[in-house]
Write a protein that binds this DNA or RNA. Structure first.
Lengths: 202, 202
DNA sequence: AGACAAAGCGGACCGCAGTCCGTTTTTATT
DNA sequence: AATAAAAACGGACTGCGGTCCGCTTTGTCT
């Protein structure tokens, strides 16, 4: 009679306990509510815990840190957006020529990063960087660049193109340099064309 | 007998009191010492105050916030660097053709931003952004782009080129994408040439 | 020199992020 | 159903950033 420990599946997450799942849901919902009520900066961890009806320790067990919680909040919209990129209507989604997709990608990403600027900021290191967003966007831009026919250090170029789409940069441009969203879009288009055209018209 | 208030010079800073100056010096020195002893993250405001032999309130009076203090620390090296750009030896300083200066600018900025990554991070909003550094570098890159003969939205292009030189981006590239410094340099050169060449070979 | 503002100073105090550990709930096993 | 291990929970507690306000120093005007 061996203990039927049916092998841990090597890295399969041990499955979440039901109460844990319930609490996570409650916490996310509470956080969302508080964000829309007090703004991102007005949300304290104690408040989130209280609103969800759990102890503070629970919040940290689930989300590790304030940044982690904010990142989790972010992931919601991020997921929907990724779906739009992977299988939504063109030109953001598949079906349009890769250059058009790249331009649309920039416009869309700009909007997102401006809209969630405060959340992204609050998510700090766990936010824009190191999380799903970075690897997904980087991967996608690399893919599009290749499709367009760009030669060279694709990985570097992808990151370089993504950099000016970062929330911090956009915020600086719109707030302190007074650049309009329309101008940002035109600028992006121009930048992309410059980067790309070197390989197209040799 | 009019009060010889010899007009406030309209916005001339009211001149710093001697004790204030002394304390500022002491604080900066203390902060620097602590940074090199405990690392940026290990520096607490209380410690800085204690080490300088003043009260905590004084620290905040001089530097407003922790970020402000870090920004002040940063300004030291920043100033030296600006001097090198404005009047140092080519190709970073004047004398070389503008394209070479632009390439050298990128390499140099990269090094700085990587070297002081933790300080920049700690200086947060008061650091890379909104402070001396941003307007100076932006101005300089705009100037070089113009000299090179780039047409278009120079202000936007300057910011877009500066974005991938930001400490956060560089850190991501070197740490999680494992891109070597050498490759970053080559990438920068390639990026700049792509952006520039569109206007040069029409 | 004396006096009077203004600027500077200090450290007690507050709020929030994050930790710790004894207690409770869930789930697998018999 | 009983049991036991693992996972989750809660809330008191700590440390740090930042504020506040009564006291002291500095500089100026007579």
């Amino acid at each position: 009679m061996s203990t039927t420990r049916l092998l841990p599946l090597l890295g399969a997450p041990p499955a979440e306990r039901s109460d844990a799942a319930r609490n996570r849901e409650a916490l996310l919902q509470a956080a969302e509510a508080l964000v829309s009520r007090c703004g991102v900066d007005g949300v304290t961890m104690d408040a989130v815990a209280a609103q969800a009806g759990v102890g503070k320790g629970t919040v940290y067990r689930r989300f590790v840190s304030r940044e982690g919680l904010m990142a989790a909040l972010l992931n919601h919209s991020e997921t929907a957006w990724q779906a739009a990129v992977l299988s939504g209507p063109p030109p953001l989604g598949p079906g349009a020529p890769p250059l058009d997709r790249l331009l649309a990608f920039g416009h869309s990403r700009m909007e997102i990063n401006l809209k969630h600027g405060d959340l992204i900021q609050a998510a700090g290191h766990a936010g824009a960087r190191a999380y799903a967003a970075v690897s997904f966007t980087a991967m996608h831009v690399r893919y599009l660049l290749t499709e367009v026919g760009v030669r060279g250090d694709i990985a570097f170029l992808a990151t370089a193109l993504l950099a000016p789409l970062e929330s911090v940069i956009l915020e600086q441009q719109t707030r302190t340099e007074h650049i309009s969203l329309e101008r940002l879009r035109l600028g992006w288009d121009d930048l992309v064309r410059r980067v790309v055209s070197a390989d197209l018209t040799p």
